[in-house]
Simulated scan of single mutants.
Amino acid sequence: MLRSVQGIVLRSMDYGEGNKIISLFTPELGKVSIMARGAKKMKSRHAAVTQLFTYGDFVFFKQSGQMGTLNSAEIIEAHHALREDLYMSAYASYLVELTDKMLGDEEGSSYLFEQVKAGLAAIEEGKDMQIVVHLYEMKMFDLAGYLPVTDACVSCGAESPITAFSPAMGGILCARCRHKDPVAIPIGEGALKLLKLFPRMDMRRLGTIKVKEETKAQLKQCLRAYMDVHVGIQWKARGFIEQMEKYNI
């Protein structure tokens, strides 16, 4: 069956002499794998459109249970800046890697597609990259059924005073229950507010927000630990980001 869709390239890998296989995220079909024959060749009409982060119109042939074959494609947004800037490339790579690894074949939704598209645009526009990926991480937790409890203490249900975040217990802890997880992460009012806001926030409405470095550090610690406990995937792009942080690149 010939399909015509808009899509975002989540992953692009070489295959054989001159071909590429791309993981394409679409609003109608979810995530699909497509063979782009000859795309490795510099003069190929598919060379540009199969690059990572590319948003475009794709026409491909796909039979049930088989990989699709790309017929034609037109670029809507190339996202050159995301590939040319080291920081942008690292954070954008993490965003698409989250999508690629946490979704199965033909899994996804039009809403999630719009969140990915808006996230890549937000990074390219210079919005806070860390906030963009944390917001998207919460979307993926929600999709996978791992959304942390952030509206009340995960242990007793109290709404205040909240003092810590427990990845192991699955959410925030009040002062009275803090002792139940000795390694729970202390959080302040700013981090707690964002943890509550992220699940309800649409990436398309993300403005230029200023977040204190202390708050961002707490968010990073909380969500990375939560990801490791509940998802347990080795993230190539996140590992690169952590290396940049370690060596202050």
Rank of each mutant, 00 (worst) to 15 (best):
E114Q: 07
Q218G: 02
F240Q: 01
N19G: 05
M201T: 12
K216L: 10
P186R: 01
V49S: 03
F240G: 06
L10F: 15
R224H: 15
K101Q: 15
H179L: 04
A184C: 05
V132L: 04
A158I: 07
E245S: 09
A36C: 05
T54M: 04
P167I: 00
V133T: 14
L24H: 03
S33G: 08
R178F: 06
M42S: 14
D57G: 11
I34A: 00
I131T: 14
A158E: 09
S33H: 05
K127N: 15
A191P: 12
L219I: 05
K127A: 07
I34W: 00
S33I: 06
G119N: 06
G232Y: 07
L147Q: 08
S160V: 15
T26S: 01
S72E: 09
G171N: 04
E84Y: 07
M138L: 10
Q130V: 09
S89D: 02
E107S: 02
V5T: 12
K216N: 02
A90M: 01
S89N: 14
E124Q: 12
M102T: 10
V154P: 09
P182M: 04
P186M: 00
I172L: 01
K236W: 15
A48F: 09
L112N: 06
M203D: 07
Y111R: 07
I123T: 08
Q115E: 13
F58T: 02
M102E: 12
L194F: 13
G38Q: 00
L206M: 13
T54S: 01
G56M: 04
G207N: 10
E137F: 15
L95M: 08
E214I: 06
A191D: 08
Y91A: 00
V229W: 02
L29V: 12
R200P: 13
G16V: 10
A73V: 11
K20N: 01
K246N: 07
I209L: 09
V154H: 06
Y87S: 10
T215Q: 03
Q6R: 13
S64H: 08
A217E: 14
T50K: 00
M102K: 03
Q51V: 00
G30A: 01
G38C: 04
G38H: 03
A184S: 13
E137T: 12
Y91W: 15
S4Y: 14
R204G: 14
V132K: 04
K117M: 06
R37V: 12
V96Q: 01
Y136T: 12
A237T: 13
L103T: 10
